[in-house]
């Protein structure tokens, strides 16, 4: 199943939420796999099925140590791939925000601004989700939060930077649009370096790297 939220597989006229619906991250996993570079959806689902088989196979008895180890293996697969799916989403929405800023720089429209705000919200959501896993991301989390910001940079270049003691948002001109775009690229770079994302939706440097390969390299000992 690729990039599908719902499908009426048995054609009974209704979507069965237990067997015919992809929830949340599973939907994202399948959408990234569409590019053919990753196989998150099947990997995670298969690990769940294999893990369940071990548990069901014990028939209510205690798991042997080898069964426990095998189960832990499946858990690790789910963990790592699920985290990557979230990192892919962060990567993708950082690219969307970048594109939205370019559009807003060209022409302002209310619609373009609301798309920008929506994409920033998605980015922030996934960036937070990434930090709710079992391991502490440490420095990566600090960088990610600083780059994403507490709110999107607004049209007058102001941005929410904190909350005062009365609970009001503090807005400041903390960074320019150019810097914010740069931060989006840095988020993409961070996702590649720390999580090894591969699907790379909305890769903002993809055009540049394809052009670089088009010109060809100059790593040859030749005298003109």
């Amino acid at each position: 199943m690729k990039d599908m939220a719902a499908v009426d597989q048995n054609k009974d006229g209704v979507v069965d939420l237990k067997s015919e619906y992809n929830f949340a991250h599973a939907y994202y996993a399948s959408s990234f796999d569409k590019g053919g570079k990753t196989n998150y959806y099947n990997t995670v689902t298969q690990a769940f099925l294999d893990g369940r088989k071990i548990i069901a196979g014990a028939k209510g008895e205690k798991l042997s140590s080898s069964e426990k180890a095998a189960l832990q293996g499946h858990i690790a697969v789910i963990n790592a791939n699920w985290e990557k799916v979230i990192a892919e989403s962060v990567f993708k929405y950082a690219g969307s925000v970048y594109k939205d800023i370019v559009k807003l720089e060209e022409n302002y429209s209310d619609k373009a601004f609301s798309t920008y705000a929506k994409h920033w919200g998605e980015l922030k959501g996934f960036a937070l989700a990434l930090q709710t896993g079992k391991s502490n991301l440490g420095e990566t989390a600090v960088k990610l939060n600083r780059l994403t910001g507490m709110g999107p940079v607004l049209m007058n270049a102001s941005q929410v930077t904190g909350v005062d003691s009365a609970g009001n948002y503090i807005k400041e001109e903390a960074q320019s649009w150019g810097e914010f775009k740069l931060h989006m690229l840095k988020i993409q770079k961070l996702m590649v370096e720390k999580f090894g994302v591969k699907a790379k939706g909305n890769d903002m440097l993809a055009d540049m790297s394809s052009l670089a390969s088009k010109v060809g390299s100059s790593d040859s000992a030749e005298n003109d």
Partner: peptide, 25 residues
């Protein structure tokens, strides 16, 4: 004869290429 080039010179040339092409791109 274009390949009659010392490898260290070849490395210098590759830096030149990376710099000139990278800045324009």
């Amino acid at each position: 004869t274009v390949y009659r080039t010392h490898p260290l010179e070849g490395i210098l040339f590759s830096f030149r290429g990376a710099f000139s092409q990278g800045t324009v791109i």
